[in-house]
Computed example of a mutant assay.
Amino acid sequence: MTKTILITGSSSGIGKATAKHFADQGWNVIATMRVPEPSTSANVLVTRLDVQDSDSITAAVGTGLERFGRIDVLLNNAGYGAYGLLEATGMDKIRRQFDVNVIGLLETTKAVLPHLRAAGGGTIINVSSIGGKVTFPLGTLYHGTKFAVEGLSEALHYELAAIGVHVKIVEPGFVNTDFGGRSFDFTNDESLTEYQKLVGAFLTRLATDGDEPEVVAEVIYRAATDGTDQLRYTAGPCAAELLAARAATDDATFLGGIEAQFLERI
């Protein structure tokens, strides 16, 4: 039978590219997003799913199963980046960052697990980031969530092996998406003058060319189909270069290099 993937955050960027890639390979695709967009593809179901809305998660899983009869792969892709000064950030923003990037991922996973268990197997792929292995200034919240995704995924891969489910982590680097736009939430308070040179240095370096989302989609497809127990997949040359540098150096050297990129501008 034709396999089915459910993807969160499919309206743009990595999610949209991945939905297209899987559909082109003949898969059924449940492409979910907060505001559904029309689709004319017979093997693509576009439906609403907001990872902060429990009812929408349940409904999307149910609608997908009703349409295609099965879910073989879950791609937890929905997320965004909250950056900025912790001192200036309200608790509502702090909670939202973790609700979307961590709690929503866990709740969507829980909604799909009974079906994977009944089927005797499947795959869950969680989109992490190089930001789950290395950090940059002003990324306390975003990096906190991606480090959490790394840890929970690694622990889950032991747990879900008991029901034949593979857990995979995909780690993109800088990707040419709207991360600097609607998927980026920056908080500053110019009255906190002591931080402003760091803020300026960070924003100057924010415009960095990256890999195309289609590159990440291809890695996600490999993770879904390679039939191995491999846990982590580096997605794209940008990620490979930075993660290799992190693995090859001690904390003092690597952190010193990051500081040199930002703090020397202050």
Rank of each mutant, 00 (worst) to 15 (best):
T58G: 15
A162V: 13
T225D: 02
T249I: 08
T234I: 12
D185C: 00
D55W: 00
G62E: 11
G173S: 10
I71N: 05
S129M: 02
A245P: 04
L255Q: 11
L203R: 02
A252I: 09
D99H: 03
G132W: 04
G13P: 12
A161T: 04
G257Y: 06
G79T: 05
P137M: 03
M33V: 02
I103F: 10
I7A: 07
E194D: 14
V149P: 00
F136L: 14
Y195T: 04
D92M: 03
L141K: 01
G256A: 04
I103T: 13
G9Y: 05
T18L: 11
L74C: 07
P137L: 06
Y142V: 00
R95Q: 07
L49R: 01
Q230V: 05
T108G: 03
D92A: 13
G131H: 01
A19R: 07
W27M: 02
Q196E: 10
R205H: 05
E214V: 05
G79V: 05
G227V: 05
A19N: 09
I94Y: 10
V46Y: 02
I220A: 00
L160A: 15
E259P: 08
V170H: 08
N126H: 07
F136S: 10
T2I: 09
L192A: 04
L198A: 14
L113M: 13
Q25K: 12
I163F: 14
Q25H: 13
V175C: 11
A247R: 09
D53G: 06
G236C: 03
L75N: 04
F262P: 11
E159T: 10
